[in-house]
């Protein structure tokens, strides 16, 4: 479904490699990427989403070998770690804008907006501006926005960090439904062990790091 081969990435020429010769295939299902802070989980996620360009290596998506823009528009849902909603647009407008840019038809868009807002428990918040919502509600809204175009690939960076169990439960339920048809892949960077039972595959990023050096960095 989604694979990367021999990925190298560093933030500047003098910096050490964050990802060095990293390769992995992501089959349909839910994949968790776990590891210490700064081990390169989020970096990998952004590279997979095409939001960072790797210095070496390849990312392949089924059906999207070259046309990465189309992939980002139509078949990629991305949830950043920070609550990235358009601040001057209501939740409903945020969802509509993302769906219309993905080329979702008007009818499907209207249906999906209601469907995902309901699923994520946001039906009463659709006219609200992000600043008038709690962190958990905003997080659910960003997930709804990523799901509205019903992408093939969903990438989530710490989607449940700082969320209570109830909010986490809602998100877990929605993610399960998302991969239910067996044709979609969700990759989640997380420290949250509450998501572990959800995973079809857990990728431990710590094994790519020299443990001693990393612990020194943390210290």
């Amino acid at each position: 479904m989604l694979s990367c081969q021999n990925i190298y990435y560093r933030y500047s020429r003098r910096a050490p490699w964050v990802l060095e010769d990293f390769s992995h295939d992501f089959a349909p299902g839910i994949h968790l990427i776990k590891g210490y802070s700064g081990c390169g989980k989020s970096t990998l996620l952004r590279i997979l989403g095409g939001y960072l360009k790797q210095q070496k290596g390849k990312v392949n998506v089924d059906g999207y070998r070259k046309n990465n823009t189309k992939f980002k528009k139509q078949d990629l849902g991305f949830v950043f770690q920070q609550l990235n909603l358009l601040p001057l647009a209501s939740v409903r407008r945020n969802l509509h804008l993302a769906a219309s840019l993905a080329g979702v038809s008007r009818q499907t868009r209207n249906e999906n907006v209601d469907k995902y807002l309901n699923r994520l428990g946001l039906q009463d918040f659709k006219k609200r501006l992000p600043k008038s919502m709690s962190g958990g509600q905003q997080q659910r809204a960003t997930i709804a926005r990523a799901l509205i175009k019903e992408p093939k690939v969903l990438l989530l960076d710490e989607p449940t960090s700082g969320l209570d169990d109830l909010n986490t439960e809602v998100i877990i339920k929605v993610l399960k439904e998302f991969v239910d048809d067996g044709n979609r892949v969700a990759i989640i960077c997380t420290h949250d062990s509450r998501l572990d039972p959800l995973a079809d595959d857990i990728l431990d990023f710590n094994r790519f790091l020299p443990m001693e050096g990393h612990l020194e960095t943390l210290a």
Partner: peptide, 12 residues
């Protein structure tokens, strides 16, 4: 820049 980047991430 933040709003521009966000819109760009949607494909604008």
């Amino acid at each position: 820049m933040y709003v521009s980047a966000l819109l760009k991430s949607f494909g604008v």
